[in-house]
């Protein structure tokens, strides 16, 4: 099964995998060989790839979509980096920025909620990466 992750800038991941766990908007979703065709909305979080030699590779992705069909899992995301490249300080800063956004109208509140949720997920991932 092939897993491809693309950001607007480049193709970040393109490799053979056995098993893929993607962070959907409401929790993790696992995709194995022969999975039914699915399109899902991604949240921010950890993308886990189990490779052919049973080792696990961890990536952080932020929003976008996943499409699984014909044993190809493709992720479209605005941001993707290796788990180890996450910076906790930067993530915390992003969270503070998001929390300080104005929420004076329903539209602004919606934008803020989304920004905060994304930033929280990044902090969580960065903390997890730091613990490893």
């Amino acid at each position: 099964m092939k897993c491809v992750a693309v950001t607007p800038e480049k193709t970040v991941v393109e490799r053979e995998t056995k098993f893929v766990v993607v962070p959907l908007y409401d929790g993790e979703y696992a995709i194995g060989v022969g999975h039914t065709p699915v399109v899902g909305r991604l949240g921010a979080g950890e993308l886990r790839l189990t490779l052919d030699d049973d080792s696990v590779e961890r990536w952080y992705v932020e929003g976008g979509f996943v499409e699984a069909a014909n044993d190809v899992v493709s992720l479209l995301t605005t941001r993707a980096c290796k788990f180890s490249e996450l910076d906790l300080n930067e993530a915390t800063q992003a969270l503070n920025d998001a929390l300080n956004r104005p929420a004076t109208s329903p539209e602004l509140r919606e934008i803020k909620t989304k920004a905060v949720a994304t930033a929280r997920a990044r902090v969580r991932a960065a903390e997890k990466a730091a613990r490893r």
Partner: peptide, 20 residues
């Protein structure tokens, strides 16, 4: 032409895809 299952729904995916 595969029939995709949309998570959570085609509408929600569309909501996200337009800004993207």
């Amino acid at each position: 032409r595969l029939q995709f299952e949309f998570l959570p729904s085609p509408r929600s995916v569309l909501e996200e895809i337009v800004p993207t």
